[in-house]
């Protein structure tokens, strides 16, 4: 088990190293940051002065090592636009995105697991059909459209929920549903397919033959096996949600790192873009690592392989 953990940690470290080089190169090759920093009401002369002032005229490799060195000690520098350090900005905004991501994942699991299981127990039943419809609609409908329809219905017509901002927990209901719903289809279909496979397998038949109760068979034996791919996919979906929250945060004016990363990208706020991309990459790597470890606990075979 220890060797397994070490191997996984090493590959996680390599992934992050590659990611850091890519982030830096892509951010710097995408365009001239001096233009974006100077801002819309500026002329070419302002831009030329700012290019020198921020050191963009230095060799790229020199800029990369300077950034890496500081990033390793937790110093991501200062934003080019906000009068704040990048660490401060990320720390105040990360909780919002994490709250949104975790609640959206919980929402997605709360919908997809029961529906997936019921659909598997009674294939082609009404519940199965309904869950199929939910899955297809969720997959087909653009998130931003769904979000706006909710705003019109719950925010404007019924006046049940606040439309934008992050002033109270109610502000998170619509964003959570919008973001979570998008992850639902994959998880639901995966649970259903896995469950059907499991219920038809030999060990379930044996368990039935031993006279075990229905619930015990379902949750102790079948579900445990079904959960392995679901955990892996959930981890990936959670990472995708952190990225997908860019659109949702914009629509609902939630000041999380999703919106921040969009704004920073448009305005070439490179220290912010680099820090956020790196943080999301770290999350991805940690989530995959966590999923691997959870699966190793669930299934002893993985530990050896």
């Amino acid at each position: 088990m220890i060797l397994f953990v070490l191997k996984r940690l090493f590959s996680a470290f390599l992934t992050l190293l590659v990611v850091s080089v890519l982030i830096f190169l892509l951010a710097h090759l995408a365009g001239d940051p001096a233009i974006a920093i100077a801002g819309k009401e500026s002329t070419a002369e302002d831009i030329a002065r700012i290019r020198v002032h921020y050191g963009f005229d230095r060799p790229l490799i020199e800029q990369y090592f300077a950034w890496c060195g500081r990033a390793l000690s937790g110093d991501f520098g200062r934003s080019y636009h906000y009068q704040q350090t990048v660490s401060d900005m990320v720390m105040t905004r990360l909780p919002i995105t994490l709250t949104l991501g975790v609640s959206a994942l919980c929402f997605a699991l709360a919908i997809s697991l029961p529906l997936g299981i019921f659909a598997a127990i009674r294939p082609n039943s009404l519940i199965d059909r309904i869950s199929l419809v939910i899955a297809v609609v969720g997959q087909a409908m653009p998130t931003f459209w769904f979000a706006l329809v909710m705003i019109v219905f719950f925010g404007l017509t019924l006046r049940w929920l606040p439309i934008s901002g992050n002033a109270s927990w109610q502000n998170f209901i619509m964003p959570t549903i919008a973001l979570g719903y998008f992850a639902t289809p994959a998880l639901m279909r995966l649970t259903r397919a896995g469950m059907i496979d499991a219920l038809e397998s030999d060990y379930i038949r044996t368990a039935r033959a031993k006279g075990l109760g229905h619930a015990s068979i379902l949750f102790k034996h079948a579900l445990r096996n079904v959960m392995i791919p679901v955990v892996s996919v959930s981890a990936v979906q959670f990472g995708a949600m952190l990225g997908g929250s860019i659109v949702i945060e914009q629509i609902f004016a939630l000041q999380g790192i999703g919106w921040l990363s969009y704004d920073a990208t448009v305005r070439s706020d490179l220290p912010v873009v680099q820090a956020i991309t790196l943080i999301i990459a770290v999350f991805y790597v940690l989530l995959t690592l966590a999923a691997d470890l959870i699966n190793a606990l669930l299934d002893p075979r993985i530990r050896i392989g």
Binding site: I151, G155, L156, R159, I163, S164, I251, A253, Y262
Partner: peptide
């Protein structure tokens, strides 16, 4: 003053009195 990046959201807030 609130920063609301999406103009459709701003309009919805205006219509709702937010």
């Amino acid at each position: 003053i609130r920063e609301i990046p999406d103009i459709q959201t701003q309009v919805a807030e205006l219509l709702a009195g937010g």
